[in-house]
């Protein structure tokens, strides 16, 4: 790891001020991706601004039709929350499938979204549920948040404070894991919001994406068969050691079908 300066602000404002000053600085949430990258010297921030001491960024609130989760809330807290399990069981389940137990005890919602790893799980829930990402500056709709490979709408120094997930009528997440890293080779989040159906796919492409054909078909008939014949194009999907684009495209259909089955259970 290269040397850096360490900061531990106690408020979002202080953190934002520090971030504004340090062009080569990085915000540190749970660190489950960032610290790894720094260890391998793939990331070398001049300054690390640790959000760990900011109480305002933690916690889960269920309010009527939506679940608001603070950016520094650990995956394990979401997975284990009785309130989340009741309001959006698919979200709690998704959180329980991230990484491993130890990673879930440190990793955070905000960190995961800001990092926007193409194979991360949370982006599927954010996009699939049509959540709103709240920052210290504004509110960003899920459809506007993810911009590409490790790219988001966040501006330099902008800090995610919480994410608000509207509770769907029914939803489910199914993930086909990379056997080595346990990230998603393909993860599909299907949500019947009551006003329509959203299908979000993670792992398959450079960034999480929706599948309009599947949404339309499921809107007409929310049943596994409705998506069984719908294939996404392999063009532009990821190819790596573990799965070709063609295989990923196939898995999107299989996982979507299974997600619908799960949502109906």
């Amino acid at each position: 790891m290269h040397a850096f300066n360490y900061h531990r602000p106690s408020s979002v404002n202080d953190a934002a001020a520090l971030a504004a000053k340090q062009a080569e600085g990085k915000l540190l949430a749970g660190g489950q991706s960032l610290v790894q990258a720094m260890k391998l010297r793939l990331a070398s921030p001049s300054d690390l601004i640790d959000l760990g001491a900011i109480g305002d960024l933690k916690g889960i609130k269920v309010d009527g039709g939506s679940v608001s989760i603070g950016a520094m809330t650990r995956h394990a807290e979401v997975a284990g929350s009785a309130e989340v399990k009741k309001a959006i069981p698919a979200l709690a389940y998704l959180a329980s499938q991230i990484g491993d137990r130890q990673v879930r005890n440190m990793g955070t919602l905000g960190g995961s979204l800001a990092n926007a790893d193409p194979a991360a799980d949370y982006p599927a829930a954010v996009l699939g549920l049509g959540a709103t990402v709240v920052t210290n500056k504004r509110k960003i709709a899920a459809d506007d948040f993810f911009k590409g490979l490790y790219e988001t709408a966040l501006q330099p120094g902008e800090i995610i404070t919480q994410v608000s997930f509207p509770a769907p009528k029914r939803a489910a997440y199914v993930k086909f894991k990379n056997p080595a890293s346990r990230f998603a080779i393909v993860g599909v989040f299907v949500a019947d919001t009551g006003k329509g159906v959203r299908v979000a796919v993670t792992g398959a492409g450079p960034s999480v994406f929706r599948v309009a054909d599947m949404e339309k078909a499921l809107g007409a008939k929310f049943a596994p068969d409705a998506v069984a014949g719908i294939k996404v194009k392999a063009d532009g999907l990821n190819t790596d050691l573990h799965a070709s684009a063609e295989y990923r495209a196939h898995l999107v259909t299989v996982m979507a079908k299974r997600a619908v089955e799960a949502a109906l259970k």
Binding site: R8, G52, D100, V103, N105, M106, A180
Partner: peptide
């Protein structure tokens, strides 16, 4: 390991199992 997979560094922090290789001491 150096990629947070092996878990040989697992300890408890505030009662929870975490990987001590995946955080700086200041955390």
């Amino acid at each position: 390991c150096d990629t947070a997979q092996c878990g040989a560094c697992t300890i408890h922090m505030n009662g929870k199992a975490i990987k001590a290789c995946s955080m700086v001491a200041m955390q």
